[in-house]
Design a binder for these strands. Structure first.
Lengths: 320, 320
DNA sequence: TTTAGTCTGGCAACCGTTTGCAAGGGAGGA
DNA sequence: TCCTCCCTTGCAAACGGTTGCCAGACTAAA
């Protein structure tokens, strides 16, 4: 059994409160005593039990981070950045994956409650209502979703979408397919909003779709059939799946159809053709989210991060 | 403030122990009383505080899962499988990333101690000695490492390496470069061991290397210069980096050099040329690790999972 | 009616820490 | 020499639960 505070106290003939203070308020204990306690603690391999400590202090120095799909390469940079940032603040980040299932997401949040000081919700699949309810039990910071009065870090998807569309129209495309993501995704809505209000476009919508390759693969045939000469895909994974499906049908990208994704993930760079995409500031978002959570006496601060269009090889001039 | 067990007790005029039993030993409380308690609890939105519960019971129903690099596509399937398996056992998995830093790894384990019932250590970077010491405080299951008396799930890297080498020799390769991973990596050792005892090979070793693209990119020049006609790389990421570096030097894969990786990650399949690789049973490993942890009254059970060579496009006949 | 056994629920100790309060001792000022 | 004040430490309650033990109320058997 691991040594407890009592063992240390007994070993050096001192009260537990003194041991406690040695760790959490060293200035309140005599240097000589402190040294003895430290020695004994080290000797016994004592480590304060963080769970027990949390019980009285109400702080765990942990935070939870929930993503829909860890396998999506978009998330790891965000996660790593969040972890690094938290580490610098003496916090630890525990990650969990919901497998795109809102029920699992709720379950996980409930589990996190009281074991962490707050939760970073990345691209949640839960309804706003539900999130608001759960927020009564544990502080949230939401990434890629706007919820009234809740701290959020947003990525400027609208801006990115606008640039992407300009790029496409500049290449002569008019009939453009929009391949969206899961139902209720904020990102999807932003994209569609921008596209809808851009004049002179002939839009075709496809969705909802799974936000991974399978989703892109599944709509490839429909996209090919709809006569669009360019596609704006929900994310890079979908774009990649789409390209794969297209090339299986002997449809060349970008020769016959141009494709743009969102995120700028590694496989997109490795792919042939290299994917044109709207880069999302994932790492910065991870860092910001941590900071927002830590400051979040400050209620519903909202931070919006810029995106950038990266033109590579999957877009080209429209066939005439 | 969230409702506590006391609030529920007070609300329905019953002792806290009765409320407690309503949840943790329902058969000990009268159905009528139970119903009242449940109603009150539901009404107040009461959820037992898992941390507090753990304090007395010693069980958290959480487990930790530590990986060196979440951004390595090898891990997500393992993580997801572990989470799914755990969920089926009423457990939750918290993931953390060490950023390949042994000190962070130790720190994370210490943080997990007492907040989880056990930790899954995937491809740890810590020394065996250290792991054994830490194991006094929290149960471990180690993935891809063999430590005396500690439950482990291993992947049959030796078998995979053997098949890979046979494939290569069958194509006429004799001078083969071994690009290993980080220092002390069990997988690297296995690979090297097998290669060393295979007769008729002319081996060149490169290592240690970072276990990601950067690592492969960095040795590309040396590999090219060493005159090997084929390469066995630590993992797919390294292999991909290597191929990238090689093609930057106008060296064709597989025309001039054949490359084999390990893991079978998605980007390898998307790459041109598609990567020949030794597929690792990541998902099965995740499931097994969870099961081992849960059973681990059973001490140091070791499970070994099979691997399989998948021949794609990055290997070819040796130039004559 | 007495006796033994079964249900049910209260009591209180405990898990490992923190923290407000108070007491004892020593130092410095008057 | 006496009074303050500060420093150090102990005491005990609290955090939110769980659980062994005990007692009262019934039930059923004798």
């Amino acid at each position: 059994m691991a040594a407890t505070i009592k063992d240390v106290a007994r070993t050096c003939g001192v009260h537990v409160s003194t041991v406690s203070r040695t760790f959490s308020a060293p200035h309140l204990v005599n240097p000589a005593t402190r040294a003895r306690v430290l020695a004994a603690a080290d000797d016994l391999g004592y480590r304060p039990n963080r769970a027990a400590r949390a019980l009285t202090t109400g702080r765990t120095f942990n935070m939870g981070l929930i993503v829909a799909d860890i396998a999506n390469p978009f998330f790891p940079p965000l996660i790593k950045a969040a972890q690094a940032q938290a580490r610098g603040r003496d916090y630890h980040v525990f990650v969990a994956d919901t497998d795109e299932d809102p029920r699992v997401e709720e379950e996980l949040i409930r589990t996190f409650t009281k074991q962490v000081d707050g939760v970073l919700l990345c691209s949640p699949r839960l309804s706003n209502r539900m999130i608001e309810r759960l927020a009564e039990d544990v502080p949230f910071v939401v990434v890629n979703r706007r919820i009234k009065g809740m701290p959020a870090v947003l990525m400027n998807v609208a801006q990115g979408a606008r640039h992407a569309l300009e790029h496409l129209t500049g290449l002569g495309h008019r009939r453009i397919a929009l391949v969206s993501g899961p139902i209720g995704s904020w990102t999807s809505n932003e994209m569609q909003g921008v596209a809808a209000e851009t004049p002179g476009l002939d839009l075709v919508f496809f969705g909802p779709n799974q936000p991974k390759e399978a989703g892109g693969l599944a709509v490839a045939a429909d996209v090919a059939a709809c006569g669009a000469s360019a596609v704006l895909a929900y994310n890079d994974l979908v774009a990649l799946g789409l390209i794969e499906g297209l090339s299986a049908m002997e449809i060349g990208v970008p020769d016959q159809i141009s494709v743009i994704g969102f995120d700028d993930i590694l496989p997109g760079r490795l792919n042939r053709p290299k994917l044109t995409t709207v880069a999302m500031p994932a790492a910065a978002a991870g860092r910001m989210a941590v900071d927002l959570l830590l400051q979040s006496g400050g209620e519903g601060a909202t931070v919006t991060l810029d995106t950038a269009l990266i033109v590579r090889e999957s877009t080209g001039r429209a066939q005439t």
